[in-house]
């Protein structure tokens, strides 16, 4: 039962760490890097496919976070801080056929979002402190608000809006409950200890994922 304490299945240096602390697996497939923004301390695991090449053909509106309105490449995927995209996920901006052409729409994912392994995401927006289980499919243009928990193997249909504080499950997804008032709060409140988390791992679902990010090497 006991095995050596090497938790890394991959060879040394699995992750490339950027200046802002993003950890991107060498085994991740990222296309259209110029169209992807990572907020810092965000993890992109192995076998994740980020489809940055599917970007809006029209120039992005000037309100995009690129500061000066210079000729910046259009953003197709923007991911916030301390968000973890697990192994085997596919992140693909949603598209719509209009005027005889395929148009892609920029996807936004907030801070402290956990996306479980082998999940496919095409949502238009995912807010912060969202926990998405393994094996989910989020269809195009779904909107997921803050503090939402999506149980494993859920299929969120296209255009579904999930209001904040919902627990969602099923195929198609339905709201099956509400997260408790303590969602995302680790034990000990502000001074949550190193072992505050539910499995003794220093982080809780929907909470600050910094500890989880730190543990991924």
């Amino acid at each position: 039962m006991s095995r050596p304490a090497t938790r890394k299945a991959a060879p040394k240096g699995e992750y490339i760490e950027t200046d802002s602390g993003n950890k991107v697996s060498r085994r991740a497939a990222i296309t259209g890097t110029a169209n992807i923004t990572l907020g810092g301390r965000t993890v992109i695991s192995a076998d994740v496919h980020l489809r940055g090449d599917l970007h809006p053909s029209r120039p992005a509106p000037s309100s995009s976070n690129n500061g000066p309105a210079r000729d910046a490449p259009p953003t197709s995927i923007s991911i916030g801080r301390c968000t973890v995209v697990s192994a085997g996920c596919v992140v693909r901006p949603p598209s719509r056929v209009s005027r005889g052409a395929v148009h892609y729409y920029p996807m936004k994912i907030g801070d402290n979002v956990f996306i479980g392994p082998n999940t496919t995401i095409s949502a238009i927006s995912i807010s912060s402190h969202v926990h998405i289980g393994a094996g989910c499919v989020i269809h195009p243009f779904a909107i997921i608000k803050d503090n939402v928990k999506i149980l494993p193997n859920t299929v969120v249909p296209a255009h579904m809006v999930i209001p904040s504080g919902s627990v969602v499950a099923g195929r198609p997804a339905r709201v099956v409950g509400e997260v408790g008032e303590g969602w995302g709060v680790s034990a000990g409140g502000a001074g949550g200890g190193a072992l505050g988390g539910a499995g003794g791992q220093g982080w809780v679902e929907g909470g600050d994922l910094r500890e989880l990010v730190r543990g991924i090497r």
Binding site: M1, S2, R3, A5, R7, A9, V43, S45, V84, S86, A87, G88, F114, G116, P117, N118, A134, G199, G200, Q201, L212, G215, I216
Partner: peptide, 11 residues
């Protein structure tokens, strides 16, 4: 007997 499982890996 085992380290804390890494949630980013498929079971």
């Amino acid at each position: 007997s085992s380290p804390i499982p890494l949630p980013t890996m498929a079971a």
